[in-house]
Structure formats: structure tokens, C-alpha cells
Simulated scan of single mutants.
Amino acid sequence: MKREIQVSAFIIFITLGYYLLNILALGFLGAEFLSIPLTLLLPASILIEREKPNPISRATYIFSMLWLVFMIYLLTGWALIQFIWFFMDLPWLKVLTVSSAAVAVAYGVFRAARPEIKFVEIPFPVEESLRFVQLSDVHMGTVRSAGFLKGVSGAVNRVEPAAVLITGDLLDGSRPVDSSILSTLKTEAPIFFVSGNHDTYAGDFRATVSDAGMMCIDQSVIEFEGIQIIGVGYSMERHSIPAILDMLDFDEDRPALLLHHLPVDWEDARERGIDLQLSGHTHGGQFYPFNIIVGLMFPFLRGLYSDSGSFLYVSEGTGTWGPPVRLGSSCEITVIDLVPLRGCDEGNSGDLHLHG
């Protein structure tokens, strides 16, 4: 019941904001009469996708999300152009604004459809180098389906990791996804998964993930190649890492790698002997201007951070949430090479290498 109330509140909030944007954008385009019909498409598609998904509701959902981004860039571009041209109402300026917004959205869709493979090298207390692949925020659902995951699977297999680490939001929660779709991620390496907030919107996600051959390690510790891999799943309680780590049975003096969806509580993790924390959630802001807003909410927005010999890596996400658009960020498949500490200055971030 609590989850349904949250979803309903979210839909109402989004719909009101969407309606205001439609009034402004369609007023600019001289088509105000479309404000209500276009606004209603979004909540209708969200509800139908959750209950009785079909090709029409999927297409409507994707259109509505892209239309949302188009309106944001249309209104932002018009405000900028008016400032530059001192509020001159010239027809060609409107054409420039509309075409620029359309190009921005099209480029953002192109960027979002092409995950980049990023290589990160991190000093770690291991005897021999060890390679992992981190996936995060894939958001399988309405926008991302088996075809996208098949492409991700091919990229993962080409780099031959020892294991695949999924740091939450594998599922989007926008429509039901069964294990047969997740099984499209085929690899000989074991797959370890911790939940994110969107996974909890998808019902019995643990059974779905398990049936797909993945191991959910929420609130548990596993041994892998001499490393303690610690999973802390998503919790509605903020700053839950300290309490959960204190309950888990692991050796703070041995190599420890933490998987947690949110890039928070890193200081608490360091104090408890965590050598490396892998997180996601932020999407790197996904697209302008939300990069700025998300950056204010999460100081550790994306990339690699180091402090006192401990490291945090925040993935920008393998997929997207909401609009399938990337501007100012990228979809990533992260190849993490753990290299022996010998010869490395643990506290020197200059020893770290990040390749696009």
C-alpha cells in the first residue's frame, strides 16, 4: 500500500509539472489546444505500462518522455535567444529555437543508445590483477528491453571479466520484466547483484534475478578470488550502511569490496575497512540541466574518488531512466581492473587511470 501511494503521488507530481510545461511550450508553438491531450498521454501510458503493457502504451510512454525533454530545451533555448537578441520577436528565431531543441533531443537519443566501455585501474590489496565489470542502472522495462541487454552482454564478454557486479536498478519498475529477458545477459562469469530503489518497484525482484542465474547479495558477504564482496541492498532508511556493515560478518583487515546502489556513506565504509565501494544511482545527471541539480544532491556524482587509500567509483549508469536521452553524460559499461598495491602510492589519485 505504501509503495502504491508513493507511485500515485509521483504520477500526480509529474503530471502537474508536465501540464505546466505543455502550456508554455504549446503556447510558444501556437497550439495551446493540445495541452490537455498531450499531458494526459503521460500518466495514462505510465499506468497502462504497469498493469497491461502493450506496444501502444510503450510507444506513448517513450514519445511523452522525449516530448518532455524537447519542451525543456525549447523553453530554455527560447529564453537564451531572447536574452541574446533583446526580446526581438522574429520568425527565424522561433525556427532556430525549435530546430535546435529537436537536434539536441535527437543527439541525446543517439548518445543514450550507445553505451561506452570505460576502463578504470585501481590499486587494491590483491596478489594478482583481477578484472570486474560493473553494470548499474540498466533500467530494464519500458525503454530498455532484451535487445539492449544483448548488446551489453556482447560487450561484457569481449573484456572477459572474472565477475560481473550489478550495483542496482537492473529493473526499472515501469513494466513487468521476467527472468527470460534478464537471461539475455549471458556470460560465463558469475553475476553478483545488489538492489536499487527501482528494483523495489518491480515486485519480487529477488526471484526474477535469481531465476535469471544472477546472485542477489543484499545484506550479505561472499568470498571471491580472495576478496570479500559485500552487498548492501537499497533501504528506505537513509545512511543505512554503518548499521548494516556492523551487522555483517567480515574481516576489516582483509580485502573488502562494497556494492551499494547510492554513492553515500563512503566515509563510514572507509572507517569499517572497505577498500573500494562501487555505486551508481546518479546517472551522472543524465542530461542538462539536471546534471547541475543532481550534482548538488550527490557530491560524488560520477567517476573515481580516492581518500586515505580507499576508493569510490560512481557509475553514470548503463541505461537511462525516463527519457532515453544523454547530454553531458554517457551510458557506460565499466571495466574495473584491480591491480596489486606494490609500487603504488595508495593515497595518490595520480596513479589511477580512467580510459574512455
Score class of each variant (00 low, 15 high):
178 D>W: 02
132 F>R: 03
348 N>E: 10
335 V>H: 02
338 L>F: 08
95 V>N: 07
177 V>G: 04
257 L>N: 09
39 T>F: 04
55 P>A: 03
237 E>M: 06
81 I>C: 11
59 A>C: 11
353 H>Q: 09
275 D>Y: 06
29 L>D: 08
78 W>T: 12
41 L>G: 10
148 F>V: 13
148 F>K: 13
2 K>V: 02
183 S>I: 06
82 Q>Y: 15
274 I>A: 10
86 F>A: 07
282 T>Q: 14
56 I>R: 07
266 W>L: 10
127 E>W: 03
105 V>G: 02
41 L>I: 15
312 L>P: 03
276 L>H: 06
191 I>N: 02
123 P>H: 13
275 D>T: 08
1 M>A: 08
333 I>Y: 05
264 V>H: 03
87 F>E: 03
197 N>P: 01
7 V>W: 05
220 S>G: 05
24 L>I: 06
116 E>M: 13
267 E>Y: 09
59 A>D: 07
294 V>H: 00
243 A>G: 10
342 R>A: 12
352 L>R: 15
36 I>H: 05
312 L>K: 03
84 I>G: 06
161 P>E: 06
298 F>P: 01
210 S>P: 05
18 Y>C: 03
38 L>A: 08
125 P>W: 08
85 W>L: 14
189 A>Y: 04
226 G>F: 13
266 W>S: 08
159 V>E: 06
5 I>T: 12
276 L>V: 09
108 G>R: 02
128 E>T: 02
356 G>H: 03
181 I>A: 12
148 F>S: 12
269 A>E: 02
68 L>V: 06
45 S>A: 13
180 S>I: 05
56 I>C: 04
225 E>Q: 12
191 I>G: 03
67 W>F: 15
8 S>V: 07
318 T>R: 11
297 M>E: 00
151 G>C: 14
30 G>Q: 13
35 S>Y: 00
240 S>H: 05
98 V>F: 06
310 S>A: 15
60 T>F: 11
240 S>F: 04
11 I>N: 12
125 P>L: 06
116 E>T: 11
24 L>S: 10
192 F>P: 05
195 S>N: 06
323 P>D: 00
78 W>D: 09
298 F>N: 08
73 Y>W: 11
237 E>L: 10
54 N>T: 05
124 F>I: 07
133 V>E: 03
209 V>G: 04
201 Y>A: 10
75 L>M: 11
28 F>H: 14
247 M>W: 00
39 T>E: 01
231 G>T: 08
58 R>A: 06
315 S>Q: 09
229 I>D: 00
284 G>K: 08
72 I>C: 02
268 D>W: 12
8 S>A: 09
273 G>N: 07
99 S>E: 02
34 L>M: 10
148 F>C: 13
133 V>K: 11
227 I>D: 01
337 D>Q: 09
286 Q>W: 01
21 L>D: 00
121 E>F: 12
191 I>D: 01
229 I>K: 01
240 S>Q: 01
196 G>I: 02
